[in-house]
Simulated scan of single mutants.
Amino acid sequence: MLDWIDSYEERKWQTATEGTVRYALLGLGWWTIDVALPAIESSDLGEVTTLVSSSTEKAERLAEENDVENGISYDEYHDGAASDQFDAVYVGTPNAYHLEYVETAAELDKAVICEKPMEATVERAKRLVEACEAADIPLMIAYRMHTDPAVQRAKELIDKGFLGEPVSVYGNNSQPLLEMIPDPDQWRLDPNLSGYGTSVMDLGVYSINTARYLLDRDPVAVHARMSSHHEAFEDVSDERSAATLVLEDDVKMVTTNSQHAHEDTNLKLTGTEGQIEFQPAFHGEVTLQLSRGNVTVTVDHDTFNAEREMMEEFDYFADRVLTGAPMHADGRHGLTDMRVIEAIHHSAESGDIVEL
């Protein structure tokens, strides 16, 4: 077992050791200001030069508070203001606004790192990808789990055969959204802004995408059920969601998610020879439990909170922008997740199995 564990190498992906990518951050909510901004500032290959918000006044105020050079409005961004001051844009707005800001980035010839899910609908996500491809600009979807060291370690183990043949996956992601953000009118509960719903779009995507990344297999069919009970969730159908997915090579996956439940995140992958479990998986420090034969080992990592995960993610993105190397989790990769999420909602509505 120790031979499997000791083979891990951090930042195996890194090819650039110098250079700087200058970022404009769009959507100045708590995640952008409290997580993304300090993550970039503590990274090796990035710096924040521009903040973009609904008004120039707000953007300038936050820029001054955070020692950032430029603060501009969305209208000014669309007009090309300060475009010589940044090389890439980070899009952290509500889902339904991603397309317009990415289209402008494409017009300005700027690289893009866009939060997941990448848009509100498959159709809009497809337009987003096509805009970047037409302009020949780099586009990466911000799946922060890909650069978490526990996930990186598990990926290496799986690729070397630790699981044997993958058989099944179980993922859960739940949180008490209304305790975290006590506002029933928040955008995550507005389908016009969030997209197909709230729990699968915002939480279920973690299990689905991390499983896809680890196993290098995509879903081919889904069967889902969902329901909403609390009055704040009356406009979205998936306060509680459960789905069974069939991945390529007949790997079975179950994913459960809720925005109105006790916080819990878990991802378990089982194969013919071994098992890998992340607990917690997606919030806070990620702990890895490895089982093979009659031996079980728990692997703790340095504290990798969301900011540290984002720092790794931004350095990975900058590494690819600076070197021109191919990016994983590009637009086409993110578009697959959007199609899976849409299929889950269609299955829940019809009661039928939906093939992808």
Rank of each mutant, 00 (worst) to 15 (best):
D75C: 04
A131N: 05
A96F: 04
L28Y: 02
H328Q: 14
M180G: 06
F86G: 08
L2H: 14
D185W: 00
Y143K: 14
G271T: 05
T210H: 01
D264Q: 10
Y316K: 02
T272G: 12
G351M: 08
L267D: 08
L177Q: 03
M310A: 15
V35P: 09
S55C: 03
L62I: 04
S241I: 00
E103Y: 00
F233T: 05
S207H: 01
D202N: 12
V48E: 10
L189K: 09
K126R: 15
E273G: 11
D300G: 06
R217T: 07
G19C: 04
E100M: 09
N173S: 12
H328Y: 10
D319I: 06
D159W: 01
V251N: 10
K155C: 10
V35R: 13
A120N: 13
D202H: 13
E60I: 03
H333L: 06
A329R: 11
E231C: 00
G46E: 08
L193I: 02
E130L: 09
F162D: 12
R332L: 02
D235R: 14
P149W: 03
D264R: 12
T255C: 05
L193V: 02
D300H: 12
A106D: 09
L62N: 11
K116P: 07
H98G: 01
P166L: 06
V102K: 06
L178V: 03
H229A: 06
P182Y: 05
G171L: 03
K155Q: 14
Q152I: 02
K58Y: 07
M226Q: 13
K268D: 15
P94T: 07
A39R: 07
N173A: 13
E349G: 01
L51I: 08
S241P: 00
T50H: 07
G284S: 11
L157R: 05
T244I: 03
E231I: 00
A281V: 01
E57C: 05
